[in-house]
Write a protein that binds this DNA or RNA. Sequence first.
DNA 1: CTGCTTGCAAAGGCTTTGCAGAACA
DNA 2: TGTTCTGCAAAGCCTTTGCAAGCAG
Lengths: 140, 140
Amino acid sequence: METAEVTKRLREQGITPTNQRIRIAAVILEKTWHFSAEQLLEETNREGKVASKATIYNTLDLFARRGLVKQLVVDPDRVYYDSSTHHHHHFFDPDTQQLFDIQPDQIDIKLPAALPAGKEIADVSVVIQLRSAQQTVKAA
Amino acid sequence: METAEVTKRLREQGITPTNQRIRIAAVILEKTWHFSAEQLLEETNREGKVASKATIYNTLDLFARRGLVKQLVVDPDRVYYDSSTHHHHHFFDPDTQQLFDIQPDQIDIKLPAALPAGKEIADVSVVIQLRSAQQTVKAA
DNA sequence: CTGCTTGCAAAGGCTTTGCAGAACA
DNA sequence: TGTTCTGCAAAGCCTTTGCAAGCAG
């Protein structure tokens, strides 16, 4: 994605476009992918240092609040982000720490009618943990 | 739950029953609840010190591997555990960091037919994030 | 100019680990 | 007795923060 378009996207979300944010957003929006803060940092600075670790964390937080990326809680060890904010679900492979999208037509949920009092649904997340098919689980 | 029964449960799961493990398991199995390592530590030592933080973490890891408790990944800040290993899903309220069970008959999922090659499903987790009902979400 | 943004390094919170002493079988 | 378990403190890892310098408008 070219700088001009990224800048436009940022302004549309009410985000002041700085050099770092433009570069970071360009890296994120370049493709559909799942990434950790660490991975984003590395990718952002691949061709010369653009942003620090602190800026990556601050920017991810900002982007998530503005709906540019979606935070995923699937790995107990770190937070992942999704460059796609469309509502979809995930496979998670703990062996490789990889996330795969589940296409919306592949899954279907009937949500509960009753919610705790005074609450409404903010988000629904379905995570299917994978394991190698030949692996047998020892009986408990 | 009395000591004798807890001890029996531990042996059934192939866990050597030590003083600490018996007390920890008794606290966990006393009721149906969701807890963090910190909460379990506090509850375990409520009436006199029984176990250290290291032992709590080691024991939780062991219990989870043996299927006595279930690890929940719902909060980016810490891992929660569930004293019930029956398959069910959760509401999570980020404001209070509280988890509520969703009764199995309240939710219904049609799982994907296609899985990544060589993989099978290890676990399915549905987490419904809540927010206060009157709260309006600012348009992005 | 004036306020927001960035970066460094240090701090913070949760979790794991090394190692010596204690408990289990 | 030999192995496993426990506890303390220190270390580790991911993430946040304080503060001074830099950039956007």
